[in-house]
Amino acid sequence: MSRWRAARRAPAVRAEGTGRRGSLWSRGRVLAALAVLTAALLLFHRAVPNSVGRLGSLLESFLPWLGLVTVVLLALSLLRRSATASITVLLPVVAWTAHFGGLLRPGAEPGACGLLVVQHNVGDDNTDPASTARALADTDPDLIALEELVAPALRDYEEVLAPDFPYHAVRGTVGIWSKHPLTGTRQVDIRPEGITGSWNRGLRTVVRTPHGDLAAYVAHLPSVRLGVTGLASARRDESAGLLGAAVAAEDLDRVLLLGDLNGTVDDRGLSPLTSRLDVPDSGFAFSFPAGFPLARIDQIMAASATVGPIRTLPATGSDHLPVAARVMLG
């Protein structure tokens, strides 16, 4: 009887390769599911609806950061020693590389026909606009586009930039400085419905470059806000539609758009522009916020021209970083 009781108390021998934590292939299923979800969001982000809280635009604003999620999933799958998760996490790796891998390449700088352009939201609360202007001028660009130009700081930008950029135009709070003559400057109405008072944030001018005329647009689209109800971007989207219509009606073939568009090139809210204009072929150049950049909302786009690698410039007194790229007028 005592032997029988001892046998009952003895633990059963588990089969090799099994146990409470599962086998190499059975554990890590949650991580594998998260990897599949991450890959799906990268590949099919347009399928995420914008009808509720503009979740689609919110996802697309930070889409590159799903690469960091992928790295975390890979690390956890290795710690978990899960073959299933480790293999499945290759799906978001491939998806991210397919979408953003090209931006990691150095990219080819345009040749002699290229114009170096700088785009910067200088900040309406910038306490040292003169230093900001000097920093931008020191990069020796052909064109400088600025937003949030307010009095009396506008006078500082004009005085500092005048020696190297004899041609400039300002409409409302946006402006452009050029080494080449400007002509046909006019305001572009991108005011969304419901905004009253003084609100001029768009201009169009023709730059007489040595390589032919170029229609240059400078714009500052309305800000977006992130709250408990999601992303508030309706006015930004409406303004982008108005700007897209203006670009579509442009008489010149070569078009350059410089501006703080308050959206990334993946954000469907900017599709009226990204569907008509080409974006930089290399570089992430996250420009906002300056202290810890999370997204590039300062854009350089072109039609019938090629935008080379885009990069950020050192911080100024603004909450945005300046961005620069060379544009080939093919």
Rank of each mutant, 00 (worst) to 15 (best):
P11M: 07
P11F: 07
R27P: 01
V30T: 13
A33W: 09
A33N: 07
A35M: 04
A35D: 01
A39H: 09
L42A: 10
L42I: 11
L68H: 01
A75M: 13
L78V: 15
S82E: 08
T88E: 00
V89I: 11
T97G: 06
T97P: 00
G101T: 03
G114P: 08
L115P: 09
L116G: 02
V118T: 14
Q119A: 09
V122Y: 02
A137D: 09
T139L: 12
E147C: 12
L154K: 12
A162L: 13
A169Q: 11
R171W: 05
G175P: 08
S178M: 14
S178A: 15
P181Q: 11
T183M: 08
D189V: 07
G194N: 11
N200D: 11
L203D: 08
R204Y: 00
D213P: 08
S223P: 00
S223C: 06
V224S: 04
R225A: 12
G230D: 09
A232Q: 11
S239Q: 03
R254G: 08
G259F: 13
L261W: 03
T264D: 02
D267S: 07
D267A: 14
P272K: 12
S275C: 01
R276F: 08
P280M: 05
S282F: 02
P289H: 03
G291W: 14
A295L: 15
I297C: 04
Q299S: 11
S304K: 14
V307G: 00
I310W: 01
L313P: 13
M328G: 13
